[in-house]
Amino acid sequence: MKKILNLLALSILLAAGVTWAVTGANRGWTKTSVKVETLDPVTGIEGITYQPKFLPGVDFLGAAAGLAIALAGSTLLIRNKNKTTSTNNK
């Protein structure tokens, strides 16, 4: 059980880190839309629109790290089955 939780914590941390890095390593807050600029050739104005896109930021990394720490930390509360058995035998 401990091993599974530790592996899960590590997986969450790695997945979040890879997702963050692959999507551009945004060092700001998480964005759910990105700015798209289009040039109007007649007026020379750059029009701004927002397109839906998930761009994880440092808060996303923080939340993933928090979850991973919580999962790994929870293993400290789980008693070791083998040790308990051997103590009872004594």
Binding site: G28, E46, G47
Partner: peptide
């Protein structure tokens, strides 16, 4: 009608922009 007109705002604080 082309929805190109825009106003951009920027706030640059010590901890956050």
């Amino acid at each position: 009608p082309k929805n190109v007109n825009n106003a951009v705002f920027k706030l640059d604080a010590p901890l956050e922009s």
